[in-house]
């Protein structure tokens, strides 16, 4: 894996998450004959212009037709192409779930799906554009790798790590703003291996995606209350790092925090694993409580869902 200098990390922090595929993809397009990037009238949002200009043969504009997009991606993938298919998170997952199930699952087309606007990121555009069920539905596709990176550095690492991986992958992007970085220094990244961001005691908070930054801030605030939780960045929801979860068996409480429905996502995956143990720490899942929100800024919706820094602090202090 590439080692990132502090300067390179600072450069990555100048991008919004959705633009990273273009930066990393551009490098890949230069060296990979089989690299193909496809999108459904959303290339501009991903900033693909540089790639389309220099490598027009490696770019496919499918128009607003995600079902056709994923099918074409699957066909090309089964001919040996390294295909990235891009759209908004709800439209590259739930909208095309049958396609994903059949092509990527059943037929082993190793397409890389990238969804922007995961979680509440695009809340201003309304519930159609928020993806609060994508992790849940993607987890149930056999063989699928499901990743939710926490910042641009991790996202770049994901793209590098899946190079040559003979499995389909869904990369969920959360956080729309520039500069929301969790990592300031390079670290070891492996698909399926969670990262301990902070060692603490009694309480372990497991998060992923952009909300990890809020959790880190919440943990800082909790110090003043004499609460020192462990913090784990569980970037890969599938395959889940069950060994890391098992290592938390002496904790009193495990708390999952995710920008997703509390059903079926990170919290669901952790709950499923814990439930099969004879005894395990108490579990609390923080996330969206199985509801749709009316359109509003992501920050407002996070507050409503109990996902803001202060709300997380409050919830942790009131754990029973």
């Amino acid at each position: 894996m590439k080692k990132y200098s502090n300067q390179e990390i600072a450069e990555l922090s100048q991008f919004a998450p959705r633009e990273i595929i273009s930066k990393v993809g551009y490098v890949q397009a230069q060296k990979d004959d089989k690299f193909i990037i496809m999108y459904s009238d959303i290339g501009k949002s991903f900033g693909v212009n540089k790639i389309t200009k220099e490598f027009p043969d490696k770019c496919i504009e499918a128009g607003i037709s995600e079902q056709n997009l994923v099918g074409m991606a699957a066909g090309m993938s089964n001919l040996g192409y390294n295909v990235f298919a891009l759209s908004y998170a709800p439209f590259i997952t739930s909208r095309v779930l049958d396609q994903i199930r059949v092509y990527l699952g059943y037929m082993h087309s190793n397409v890389r799906l990238i969804g922007i606007g995961g979680g509440l990121t695009a809340g201003d555009l309304g519930a159609t554009h928020t993806a609060l069920e994508d992790l849940a539905v993607m987890r149930t596709i056999p063989n699928m790798v499901v990743v939710s990176p926490c910042d641009c550095l991790e996202y770049a690492k994901v793209i590098e790590a899946i190079n040559g991986l003979e499995q389909p992958v869904y990369i969920r992007l959360t956080g729309g703003k520039v500069g929301e970085m969790v990592y300031e220094k390079d670290y070891d990244f492996q698909i399926g291996k969670g990262v301990v961001l902070k060692e603490g005691r009694k309480i372990a908070i497991i998060s992923n995606g952009n909300i990890t930054k809020e959790v880190a801030l919440a943990i800082d605030k909790l110090k003043a209350h004499g609460v020192f939780p462990t913090h784990i960045n569980m970037h890969t929801v599938k395959p889940l790092d069950t060994a890391l979860i098992d290592s938390l068996h002496n904790m009193e409480h495990i708390v999952t925090v995710e920008e997703h429905n509390v059903l079926g996502g990170l919290g669901g995956a952790v709950a499923e694993h814990l439930a099969e143990k004879n005894c395990h720490p108490k579990l609390t899942r923080i996330g969206v409580n199985d509801e749709f929100f009316k359109a509003n800024k992501a920050t407002v919706l996070r507050e409503k869902a109990g996902l803001s820094c202060d709300k997380i602090v409050e919830r942790i202090l009131n754990l029973k």
Partner: peptide
């Protein structure tokens, strides 16, 4: 319906 996009992807490839 799923044979159409898949076949189209093969054709492009």
């Amino acid at each position: 319906g799923l044979g159409m996009p898949y076949g189209l992807g093969l054709a492009l490839g």
